[in-house]
């Protein structure tokens, strides 16, 4: 063993030791109690904080789960409503199918598809139309039979009231009488039926010779 090692164990080594601790002192009883109270208070606050935090976390998780359940229910309800909406849209589309409408029109309303469409020329609404050329009544020998009591428009064309009273609404005389009846109801389904398109029954009644 080296001499230096021997020297560290001897009394001469004392000055080289670590600084000495402050001398212990006896505390007063009240001070000790106060420190103990503070310690217990801090411990209690910490405990309350920890427990409170745990409760908040648990409560938050519970609320989260509850909201999640509610959200899931709402999503399911939304999905169901969307499905119902799709089914309604599909049902509506089936009801609006052209083939179904055409079949209903033919079978229930006795409508027919037009075989021919005759275009009535457009007329100006401001310029009065010329009076139609009405043939004179045939000169026949007066008979003893009373005149027919039926509607004059259908039996005696000569007695038809002159259409000049309503020139703006009377279609032009260029429309051939033979084709006028065929235009009734010939507007294709779904068409906008413009004013210059096929005529209706009211207009064809004024066609001479009908």
């Amino acid at each position: 063993m080296s001499p230096s090692a021997t020297a560290t164990l001897g009394p001469a080594a004392t000055p080289h030791l670590a600084p000495r601790r402050p001398p212990l002192q006896v505390l007063e009883g009240r001070e000790r109690r106060r420190q103990g109270r503070r310690r217990r208070t801090a411990q209690a606050i910490s405990l309350v904080l920890v427990v409170g935090s745990l409760l908040v976390v648990v409560l938050g998780n519970a609320m989260l789960a509850q909201t999640q359940v509610r959200l899931s229910d709402m999503q399911a309800a939304l999905s169901a409503e969307q499905t119902v909406h799709r089914q309604d849209v599909l049902a509506l589309a089936q009801l609006e199918t052209p083939s179904r409408i055409a079949a209903q029109a033919q079978q229930q309303l006795n409508m027919v598809t037009p075989s021919q469409v005759v275009q009535v020329p457009s007329v100006s609404l401001t310029t009065p139309l010329p009076p139609p050329k009405v043939a004179a009544a045939p000169t026949t020998t007066p008979s003893t039979t009373p005149p027919p009591t039926t509607t004059p428009a259908t039996t005696t064309p000569a007695t038809t009231p002159p259409p000049t009273t309503t020139p703006a609404t009377t279609p032009p005389a260029t429309t051939t009488p033979a084709t006028a009846p065929a235009t009734q109801g010939t507007s294709p389904p779904g068409s906008a039926a413009p004013a210059h398109a096929t005529t209706g029954a009211g207009q064809s009644a004024s066609v001479p010779g009908q």
Partner: peptide, 22 residues
Amino acid sequence: MSYALHRYDIPTTPGAPTQGPR
């Protein structure tokens, strides 16, 4: 064409024939 022209409200042509091919 007749159905389509009427469906889309295409204005008629002045002077065009008023009857079909018959």
